[in-house]
Write a protein that binds this DNA or RNA. Structure first.
Lengths: 233, 233
DNA sequence: ACCTGAACACCGTTCAAGT
DNA sequence: ACCTGAACACCGTTCAAGT
């Protein structure tokens, strides 16, 4: 009858914050440091325990399991995505700023992109951001379910763009890989597709930070234009 | 000087296909079965070996490591994304059909969404799809880098939408979870955000297949409209 | 050329036991 | 209330050895 429950840290009351011993905040911020330094694979309960000068299994007192720990750190990433008040700057500027902040925050904590489809985003920071964006789209003139559709469209775009961007970044960093070698190899793989070859060559400068921002902005303006088009109909 | 190389199955010549013993195709399709049945966590080299009535480590003769095996199965998923010829149906219909096919293929092999930012898509099927989409956007009137920008925008949207959709699906399936319970729990988590509550309530029917397709189409039309707007400028 | 088993260096998590 | 170590059931991968 009653199968496994859907669980999330955010759906349980946190343990009473008592003074002695370690705290949940301490654990979360140590986990963040480990993640930023070594990536998702670099975080293990054993390593995190060692970093906190504690037995590896002590952490289970503060956190039900590793997945819930990841929920906690994930929400910290959402905390880095500030959204300007749409009532002040207007919905479109608010949405654009939100998109840029999402991207920046994900680039800062690149391990987070691996959590997108895996960790429920029900923490306070994620909810606050979602709430603000809903207000922005309501202000724009969307109603009912379309508010959520518009919001989903924008965040889908950002995640979909940043996930591959981060993948490329980390593939390059992990061992100071020589980018030209990669491009040559890719060009070779692509040799049967004349149209793609042109793309690879033109993409020479695409690896620079500025060019990637241009690409991001191109799509962002498209998405916002497309959403705006929904309003006049 | 020369750091770790960027490696991919597709950048090496495959081992000569000799008759005796197992074949790479056999391994890949067994891996697909395991993945479809048990998800990404269900695939281990040991289990896969057992399924093929072989020692767990025999597979390393055919495949360098697990990551390369994942590259191979990932490209099979791309093979499920057929694109109609844009010269026949027009760029916009081709793009829309591609988006729907991508979504369908990812829903069919839900484990694939976890590979999006992790496994390079350089296989023949991925390249063929990319090539066709480039032709569609060129036909639409895009030039130079903008062809790639437009393509990136569309695929980003699809991935960004489908990844959370799959996450929701698997969260529900894993243990026949009662959806109403989840919604109640989420509504409770969201209690401080009056605007979000409205969204959760309206989203009652969002869990149905049809409603999700509506949501997908809403965003898809927005993205295509937005791209089209780039052309008239 | 192909396959094997043992071994290494890891995992997340449980649980009885300590203070 | 908090922390520990031992133990369990797994991983991916290497490598010498077999046929």
């Amino acid at each position: 009858m009653t199968g496994k429950q859907f669980t999330s840290v955010w759906l349980r009351e946190p343990r009473k914050a008592t003074s002695p011993g370690r705290s949940r905040e301490e654990i979360v911020s140590a986990a963040m440091e480990l993640l930023d330094a070594e990536g998702l694979d670099g975080l293990s309960m054993r390593k995190l325990g060692a970093k906190l000068v504690a037995g590896a299994t002590s952490l289970y007192w503060y956190v039900a399991n590793k997945d819930e720990l990841l929920e906690l750190v994930y929400d910290e990433v959402w905390g880095g995505m500030t959204v300007p008040d749409p009532e002040i700057v207007g919905w479109r500027d608010a949405a654009a700023a939100f998109a840029h902040n999402m991207r920046a925050s994900l680039l800062r904590h690149s391990w987070a992109t691996s959590l997108v489809g895996r960790t429920p985003a029900l923490g306070p920071n994620a909810l606050a951001a979602g709430d603000l964006m809903r207000r922005a789209f309501r202000l724009a003139g969307f109603e009912g379910l379309e508010i959520d559709y518009a919001n989903a469209t924008l965040t889908a775009y950002v995640f979909g763009m940043v996930i591959p961007e981060v993948a490329w970044n980390t593939a390059m960093v992990e061992g100071e890989i020589d980018e030209d070698g990669v491009r040559q190899a890719v060009a070779h793989a692509v040799r049967d597709y004349p149209d793609l070859i042109a793309g690879v060559c033109e993409a020479q400068e695409v690896t620079t930070r500025l060019a990637r921002e241009m690409s991001f902005d191109f799509g962002l303006h498209s998405v916002l234009d497309g959403l705006e088009a929904r309003l006049v109909t």
